[in-house]
Simulated scan of single mutants.
Amino acid sequence: MNGPVVVGVDGSPSSLTAVETAAREARLRGVGLHVVHAFIWPNMHVSLTPSPMGPPDGGLRNLAERVLAEAVRHAREAAPDVAVTEDLVTGEPLTVLEAQSRTASLVVVGSRGMGGFIGLLVGSTAVHLAAHSRCPVLVVRGRPDPAGPVLLAVDGSPRAEAAVGFAFAEASLRGAELVALHAWSGWTGRGDDDPGHPQNLVDDAGRLGGTEERVLAEALAGWQAKYPDVTVRRDLVRESTRQALIEASEEAQLLVVGARGRGGFTGLLLGSVSQAVLHHAHCPVAVVRAGQD
């Protein structure tokens, strides 16, 4: 999709950082940037005009317009060559962002917010946006290493194919290495054999390791040929999915995950792993649902 990059703003420092990131993402893609502020107050039936006792530039509408103007200014400073448009939309923030995602190539949000986007990444709200956005969602957080790789969480499921493609495209756009990480754990018992027997542990670990290597190789097959300019490093680890991703994100400039999966990344956006990644990753996190380009 060649639609614009959309960024949701609320005036918080986090959202202004998201604006700068979104501007750079738009420049990489050669598309425009659309800055959006969700203006929920008209639906609350409160006065939007300045108070008779206050300054003439007071009032909720003037405040919203200043928030939007400041965000646009940040965007143009970050990427002067990118065409920037703006929109003050009446509505609840997530509903507004979902609607905007229908024609966007990427939606960018900050990891913390206030005002219209308060609590955007707290609890079910983050799951809601990632699950219903019509395009990938980039959550700006942490302190990314600009010289670091793009980190891809691989689980081998067909539903994660879109995330793999997105990660390759991002690595190509950024001129970065791609680290494909597949975390796995577990033991496969055989009949009545003792699972704790050292020989069984060795044999099963070796067999499982070979299986997981194939899962990783098959997930990347075809994409390396499509993006020959991207250097790929495969990282197969027998470790907690949550811990592996968080640790690896310390040296990455972007972490890409699929919204659904199996194996090591089952239910990534449904439980504790999602909370760990969205709240503790050391770099921005891109969430890509199945079927998204």
Rank of each mutant, 00 (worst) to 15 (best):
N43W: 07
R102N: 01
S124P: 02
D145N: 15
E77F: 06
E92I: 01
V127S: 14
P55H: 12
L33G: 07
P80M: 08
D81N: 03
L94R: 12
P93C: 14
V46Q: 07
G142S: 08
V108Q: 01
P50R: 11
V164C: 04
G148E: 11
P146H: 07
A75W: 09
H45T: 10
P146Q: 06
P158N: 06
V140M: 08
T95I: 12
H45A: 15
V107D: 05
R141Q: 14
T95E: 15
E92L: 01
S111W: 05
G113R: 05
D145L: 06
E92H: 07
R134V: 00
V35S: 11
S51F: 01
L68N: 01
S133P: 04
P55K: 13
R159F: 05
H132G: 04
R143I: 11
A160W: 01
G58C: 09
G119W: 03
Q100Y: 04
V107M: 02
C135R: 00
V127F: 10
E170L: 08
E70D: 15
R102S: 08
P50N: 12
V139P: 08
V72K: 13
E92P: 07
P158K: 06
F168C: 09
V108D: 02
M114K: 14
V109K: 02
L33V: 05
Q100W: 01
A78L: 03
E92Q: 14
C135F: 00
A169W: 03
D145W: 09
V84P: 02
E92S: 07
M114A: 13
V137C: 09
V164I: 09
P144R: 15
V67R: 00
M44T: 05
A38Y: 11
P55D: 13
V137T: 08
E92M: 12
V137S: 02
V127G: 13
D155W: 00
V82Q: 04
V127P: 03
L97H: 01
D155I: 10
R143K: 14
D155H: 04
A147V: 09
H128D: 12
S111C: 12
D57G: 06
A163H: 01
G110N: 06
N43L: 14
S111R: 13
A38K: 03
G115C: 04
L63F: 13
E86A: 15
R141Y: 01
I118C: 03
P50L: 13
V36G: 03
L120C: 04
G30H: 01
L120Q: 02
S133I: 03
R141N: 06
A104R: 10
L94F: 10
S133D: 01
F166P: 05
L60V: 09
A104W: 07
L48P: 00
V89G: 03
L120T: 11
G123N: 06
V89S: 11
S157A: 13
G115R: 01
H45W: 13
F166W: 13
L97E: 04
A69E: 14
P93D: 10
